[in-house]
Design a protein around this nucleic acid. Structure first.
Length: 343
DNA sequence: AAGTGAAGCAACCGCCGAACC
DNA sequence: GGGTTCGGCGGTTGCTTCACT
């Protein structure tokens, strides 16, 4: 002996969109009597609907505490963070967002946030940088313009930094590329090979664009022509001019700046990496990508750092000679190299 | 202006654990 | 203890609107 069925199949119940009249009946009934048993509600309220349908309509659209309208950036951040921890547990995520329903959050995730993360090069399921072929294809587009590469390579130029902000995910793409180089290097040759294409090892806690700068060997290798040929068949990279004193100074300043950024992060600044899920990223050697969130703190911190010092500390960003080598690289038509590499 | 495909979203479907008899 | 239903959840569908050609 169990309970009687929720909805009597012998009676044809209405489906589809709710009319204003139906909404009014449902609201007025619940306001007077409470919803009680959802199974019994439709009949009592004079609705030719399944109890399940009534419950859904009430909880998702008619409840007085429902909050409609666009999601704020704070809400977006919260959803992304919670999703990284909870996965598709929409009801649990909704519990942290007063007035928002699981259905609304689920829809918003599927139509907006998922795409947003994908565009950022982040897998919306794992919340880690993507490594699929589509991503690599996009990378060729990223690297096809000198401006993009210049922005990636010169974090000191505040104009570049601001322009870069919407493309933070591109950093993820470049790091994927860097990881590929690492894999190729470690699987193909010994460390002593002088013909090896040497790319910098990334400090795990260091934002990628800083990481690129902190490996003086890489600059040295480029300067020494080590990247111009390879016994493993790596494509040619052009030679660069020797690093100037200005570049060396910028490199040294970068370490100071990085230290200050670390201090800020350690003081509980807002960051996606604060979730427990991201704590495991240490093992993946890709933590810094998540650190640089779209709303992001890193660029803002660079900006505030710059403003506060007003250039007196030597951190004032400039569009200096540092870019010239890279821009020359691409201006000379060498962007084709990157396209070929991706192929 | 009409046709077409993409995007957005409300609602339904089916499953599962808890509750009930 | 076992069969059945309820309530809730996540996945999916299909209608509507929007954007583009």
């Amino acid at each position: 002996m169990g309970r009687s069925p929720c909805c009597d199949d012998s009676i044809e119940l209405k489906k589809g969109p709710w009319t204003p009249e139906e909404d009014e009946k449902l609201v007025s009934y619940i306001q007077k009597n409470g919803h009680g048993s959802w199974r019994a509600l439709p009949k009592a309220a004079g609705l030719n609907r399944c109890g399940k349908s009534c419950r859904l309509r009430w909880t998702n659209y008619l409840r007085p505490d429902i909050r409609r309208g666009r999601f704020t950036e704070e809400e977006e951040d919260m959803i992304i963070k919670l999703h990284s921890v909870l996965g598709n547990k929409w009801s649990r995520i909704a519990a942290h967002l007063p007035g928002r329903t699981d259905n609304e959050i689920k829809n918003y995730w599927n139509t907006h946030l998922r795409k947003k993360l994908l565009q950022m090069g982040i897998d919306p399921v794992t919340h880690k940088p993507r490594t699929d072929l589509n991503l690599l294809a996009n990378l060729s587009q990223l690297l096809s313009t000198p401006q993009n590469l210049g922005a990636l390579m010169n974090p000191w130029d505040i104009n570049n930094a601001l322009r870069l902000q919407p493309n933070v995910a591109d950093l993820a793409k470049l790091q994927v590329l860097q990881n590929i180089f690492q894999i190729l290097n470690t699987s193909n040759n010994s460390p002593s090979s002088s013909s090896q294409l040497s790319l910098p090892n990334m400090d795990q806690n260091m934002p990628l664009n800083l990481g690129l700068l902190t490996n003086a060997n890489w600059l040295g290798n480029i300067n020494n022509g080590m990247c111009s040929s390879s016994s493993q068949g790596f494509p040619q990279l052009p030679n660069f001019a020797a690093p100037t004193q200005e570049i060396v100074n910028k490199f040294e300043n970068s370490q100071e700046l990085y230290a200050s950024l670390n201090d800020n992060n350690n003081n509980g600044k807002k960051s996606l990496s604060s979730t427990t899920t991201y704590e495991t990223l240490d093992e993946d050697k890709l933590p810094s990508l998540i650190n640089i969130s779209p709303e992001a703190s890193t660029v803002n911190q660079i900006e505030s750092n710059t403003n506060s010092t007003n250039g007196s500390s030597g951190l004032t960003p400039t569009t200096g000679d540092f870019l010239e080598g890279w821009e020359k690289l691409l201006d000379d038509g060498n962007s084709e190299f990157w396209k070929e590499f991706i192929k």
